[in-house]
Amino acid sequence: MTGYLLSFLDYFQRLFRWLGVDYFMMRNIVEVKLMMDNRRNYATLGKNYQSGDSNNRLLMVYGLNALLGGIMSIFAFIIPSVLLTTTILLGYVIAWVALNLISDYSELLLDSTDNTILLPRPVSDRTIWMARLVHLLLYLTLLALSIVLVPTLVMAFKLGLGYAPVFLLLALQATLMAVFLTTLLYMLVVRFSSEERVKDMISYVQIGMSLLFTVGYQILPRLIPYQELATFRIRFKPGITSCQRPGWEV
């Protein structure tokens, strides 16, 4: 996969040169970073996959994202309202991109060994920054694509091909929103406490989430009377719903 991405980058060689970047150095750095992404441990994959030397960890994460996207797409067949389906799917995109980012952010952006390795080498600052930017963009694009692809195909199948670009555009916007919010959250946390605390907080959030889900699955259905559930409807209240990102299209 790394090979394909790099040959894709090669098409933009002249653009990078024009920007004053040493293209071969940049390609070299991006290649190594992508290689490391593929070997890193991901929280998404759980403990079972963390042993052993896999070269395809990232592909597995993408596969999992696609599967979840498929499951979420079932809504498209249950719910008749296009608006509501789109809103739910976009909500899922934002939540899942944000969760992925939160768990990988510290390794992706706050990797401080990177400076010790790259700064003493004869590579210009501009090239290093461009390599980081390109790597981040590739990572984000692939992450977002793996999450969005299946829902897009399902929506296109249901509503016609013309809907696909619209949904992709909306999903792109949702992804940017998620990135923006996560970065903001991260900056705030790092501003007021340390990098180590961030990692602690991530674990607390993860523990909280798993508790919420296991307990919630047992308790919630017993709290709601069955008759009410049968007549349950989700309705838009334009005022409130439009304030939240997934419903901006309302």
Binding site: M25, N28, V32, M35, T113, I117, V123
Partner: peptide, 18 residues
Amino acid sequence: ALYEVLTPLEYLTFIGRL
């Protein structure tokens, strides 16, 4: 300070190319 998920040969190749 080195990229630990790489092998020595890969890491040295990376540095040499720089």
